[in-house]
Design a protein around this nucleic acid. Structure first.
Lengths: 377, 377
DNA sequence: GACACTAAGTTCACCGAGTGAACAAATCAA
DNA sequence: TTGATTTGTTCACTCGGTGAACTTAGTGTC
């Protein structure tokens, strides 16, 4: 079994990339003697491997890195139909991808997963033997054990122990997680924010998701509801939202809302880029829609910065067109609504992602549990 | 010296109150054998003492509690004039209180503190010998070492290493902290939220402060700016704020703002209660002021709940009258602007505090560092 | 090419915080 | 009085860690 020190070491490598034994010792605050043993353990297990030599003065150092093929992880997104199902390795690389029919019935979902796993495993002869876990991303609230869906409006669930059900059907360790939180863990483990200890992810898909990483760990809040930025009230007495409130950010700035408003205006468009193009011709209605959406999202993010002062805001988006009016207004709105001292101090990073992001996030949840342990350390 | 385990033990006692050795062993996840040694160490040092016996089946258990007089802490608030200076014991009890002239010059402040300490120490023969540290609360941003004031508009400071200066003048370990964060630490260490691991404090004084405790620790954000809720934009294009923005919560819902608006309306009033009384007579202008302030604060808190999902919101207020229109509207605004599923799930606790709260908070910062160690564990 | 120099990584005796099991202590219940 | 029960201590032992000495594998200089 892996001790706490082994896991800490794996965490450091996942954050910093390949390191020499001496560098690892410094990073963990351990002696070279202790590191020597830890490294040997993990190399013997096949988790780490020697990856290159760095020459300098004195004896060259051997860099140790994760062995990507030591373990594989399946990830499924239940927020798309059909539901994508991917297989990735310990480096986060997607090595297989298939689709699965979406269902609202937990048993059916578990059965579908169990049935389709063999196909996913075909891509690598040892995938089945080395599977480290299954992760599932869904829209809704998940308990801190990442096992039970406390509530999901989209799936019409309440207290569904999906992880246990999938575990029973597949015999493989399974975890579930909220969609935005899964993306946050993905970015922390495999993405561009590996080395960041405090950041917030805002994910722009059809809806708006958000999740916080604090002190290097996912922060889920007391009821698993941290990051529900989509239902912050932006326009007092605004349009009714499906959540029952009025003027939620989701009704103004989500891709769904933007497209719906465009449809009402009679525009024939299916993507953000389409609307941006119409706005670029000077169309007042299109400009208004994008301007309103951009400033709403910017205001919400500005409030978030004021409240939490994260080290970075990573905005992941599945659509192109973030360089247009919407994105520009958003950035301006952030600037104008953040304390002048802070304006510009919090980097806003845009990151275009594919539709696989949720499935990859789901797999990351499994990888995180397997590699570093449950989030509660 | 105290080991990590000793400090963990002290943290548990500060969270749970007196416990038997066996209960502590369970709380720390240690064996009875290990606990036996740890407890003896701390009793020998004089930190813990046996406080009462609990009878049940079997051998009765002896409860161990902190020895309040093991150490004393000084706390100074630089957000009031004159600046209150208090001495408290390890139990958080205030045992002396004097005033100090407020200055903006760090050297003068340090000198004033050094000069007045002897008077503060008079109250207890061993106070001077057992002083564990000095804490200073101020309005502004503080670095994570709790040593340097990065920036303070009120004091017109930028990068002032006040803690070091005070340490030089007094020979006593000193720490500084932002006012709202000091209150949060006070409530965590000595207040009603000792046992809570995730909560947010909103402090209503002349201005509005806010700070988060996450996983039992103060969360200061990446630039020490977490909790700057006062400068969240509530009214787009609203009145200009001294921070340079417009429509900040501070311009609508702080006690200063409420009183200023009342003054403009020609009301002769100096407290929130005065305005509440005028509103109670049906005066439309007074009602409007309070309604607007209450809904603004409620909206800000609702956004905070959506973003962070804290386990509890503790609202500390130095004025009476929170049971009136302002408080009622605030609570309603929280309810209506929080996701229906969550409405009412996050307890909102009101806590009337004295003007000493900041000085007590300051002392708590010193106590926390002395007892549990720097926040970075 | 020999030799000093430097830094990486290993080995080994040792330390100390923790454990489990046995035991002493202090009470209640019959 | 005796037995049951639970608290708290003692003690031999384990195990993750350390510091210091050592081996290893390069570079730089003459």
């Amino acid at each position: 079994m892996l001790t706490t020190s082994h896991r800490q070491l794996l965490r450091v490598i996942s954050e910093s990339g390949p390191l020499s034994r001496t560098e690892m010792a410094v990073a963990l605050g351990l002696s070279k003697a202790a590191m020597s043993g830890l490294a040997r353990d993990l190399i013997d297990l096949g988790v780490l491997h020697e990856a290159g030599t760095v020459y300098g003065q004195g004896r060259p150092s051997t860099r140790l890195d994760l062995q990507p093929e030591w373990a594989f992880f399946a990830g499924i997104s239940l927020i798309q139909d059909p539901a994508p199902m991917i297989l990735c390795d310990l480096g986060g690389k997607v090595i297989a991808r298939i689709d699965m029919p979406l269902s609202r019935d937990p048993q059916t979902i578990a059965q579908s997963i169990a049935e389709r796993l063999p196909e996913l495993f075909k891509v690598h002869p040892q995938a089945a033997a080395k599977i480290g876990g299954i992760g599932i991303a869904l829209s809704g609230f998940v308990d801190e054990r990442q096992a039970t869906c406390i509530q999901s409006t989209l799936l019409n669930w309440q207290g569904v122990p999906l992880a246990d059900i999938v575990r029973e059907h597949t015999g493989i360790n399974a975890f579930i997680e909220n969609d935005a939180k899964a993306i946050a863990v993905h970015e922390k483990l495999f993405g561009s924010t590996r080395d960041q200890q405090n950041f917030t992810v805002v994910s722009l898909g059809d809806g708006i998701g958000c999740a916080h990483v604090i002190d290097g760990r996912l922060y889920r809040g007391n009821h698993g509801g941290a990051g529900e930025i989509a239902h912050c009230t932006i326009e007092l007495g605004g349009a009714p939202c499906r959540c029952g409130k009025r003027g939620c950010l989701d009704t103004i700035a989500s891709m769904n809302a933007i497209k719906e408003m465009a449809r009402v205006e009679g525009f024939a468009c299916t993507t953000l880029s389409d609307i941006e193009q119409i706005a670029a011709t000077g169309n007042a209605a299109a400009i208004k829609i994008l301007h309103r959406a951009g400033s709403a999202l910017g205001l919400a993010i500005a409030n978030l910065i004021q409240i939490n002062d994260p080290g970075l805001i990573l905005i992941t988006h599945t659509e192109d067109g973030l360089q247009g009016l919407f994105g520009t207004v958003m950035q301006q709105a952030i600037e104008t609504n953040v304390l002048p001292r802070y304006a510009g101090q919090t980097p806003i990073r845009l990151h275009r992602v594919s539709d696989d992001i949720w499935a990859r996030g789901a797999a990351s949840i499994a990888a995180h549990n397997f590699l570093i342990g449950p989030n509660t350390n």
